[in-house]
């Protein structure tokens, strides 16, 4: 990318959840290594896609990097603020600049609040606009911006459809004029015909407001469409990362190859002619990830050393990083 400093810089971020036992006195009996050392940066105005199967830690990564879960180790820097050490005022500054859009449009809006209360919450909490009337004006502006009628400010979430609710969630995320938004599977709960509407809206908002996105998703087709760069996660680590078309056209990691070959293509002839890399077995548990390369038990090209030696991230092509022994 450019020489400009990236907006978001994540270095060796880890999030482990303790597994405890006991009713009164709790003792730790294990650790879920949900995110186990990931590093990446996102430039201003860029969209980075974070993809992987369920349980790979992508959602946890998104939440940890906004400080919604305290991180176990590592560093997150958002627009010059060090999140891992932020408290009080500096934390609020990060909260204002970094926002989140959620997966479930039914669970992510408080059912007892009006649209006005929901969308104005960030302005109220951050004291951006202290006058109730002006806040409502701004809410109307935001609703219009996301394609909803400004007349709906006093309606309740239950009166809206899934796609409309997602727009309300987007309006709320925009209310504090953030620079960076984590989109956590924002379209996977929506109907096919609505998905394109929301994706187009996100792109339009990015252009207009110069937003930076981390797009967490499992839909690889949509990620190819919306993201500039892609990072593929497997069992808590990033196994491959690079420019969108580079990764999709020349995947290097065997996991990325398998993942891409499994994505269905809406074209009967192409689909029948495809050679699929069918992976055997399921994703292992992140409680005791496999030794060496975490992918080796399912890898079709695993070498002897994959079982013992953990591969290091290397730059196989300019800007294209991969963590695999088989890649030279």
């Amino acid at each position: 990318m450019s020489t400009e400093t990236p907006l978001v810089q994540v270095t060796d971020l880890k999030k482990h959840f303790p597994i405890t036992k006991g009713i009164v006195i709790q003792r730790q009996v294990g650790t879920v290594r949900a995110v186990d050392g990931i590093s990446f940066s996102i430039a201003r105005g860029e969209t980075l896609g974070l993809v992987g199967e369920s349980g790979c830690g992508k959602t946890t990564a998104g939440r940890t990097l906004l400080g919604l879960y305290p991180s176990t180790a590592g560093q997150v820097d958002i627009d010059g603020h060090d999140l891992t050490h932020a408290r009080g005022k500096s934390m609020m500054e990060i909260r204002r600049k970094a926002q989140m859009i959620f997966q479930d449009p039914y669970a992510s809006l408080n059912p007892r609040w009006t649209v006005n209360a929901i969308v104005s919450e960030p302005m109220r909490v951050h004291h951006l606009i202290n006058n109730e009337k002006d806040r409502q004006e701004r809410v109307k502006e935001l609703l219009t911006l996301v394609g909803l009628s400004a007349r709906l400010v006093n309606r309740f979430p239950h009166e809206f459809s899934g796609g409309q609710r997602q727009r309300i969630g987007i309006a709320r995320a925009l209310a504090s004029n953030p620079r960076f938004i984590v989109c956590d599977e924002p379209i996977s709960a929506l109907d096919v015909s609505i998905q394109a509407q929301v994706v187009n809206l996100l792109e339009e908002l990015q252009d207009r407001l110069n937003l930076t996105y981390l797009f967490v998703a499992h839909d690889l087709s949509m990620v190819r469409h919306i993201c500039d760069r892609v990072a593929v996660m497997y069992l808590g680590i990033i196994v491959e990362m690079g420019e969108r078309d580079e990764v999709y056209e020349h995947p290097l990691h065997p996991y990325t190859k398998a993942l891409l070959s499994a994505v269905p293509i809406p074209d009967p002839r192409k689909e029948r002619a495809r050679q699929r890399v069918i992976l055997t077995g399921d994703v292992p548990s992140p409680i005791n990830p496999p030794s060496g390369c975490r992918f080796h038990p399912r890898c079709p090209v695993a070498l002897e050393k994959c079982k013992t030696e953990t591969p290091v991230m290397k730059e196989a092509a300019p800007g294209h990083f991969v963590e695999c022994h088989a890649v030279k």
Binding site: A196, V199, S221, H225, D267
Partner: peptide, 13 residues
């Protein structure tokens, strides 16, 4: 309205 995993993006959906 469907994005394609096998094609480069050319325009908005």
């Amino acid at each position: 309205a469907l994005p394609r995993v096998d094609r480069r993006r050319d325009s908005r959906l």
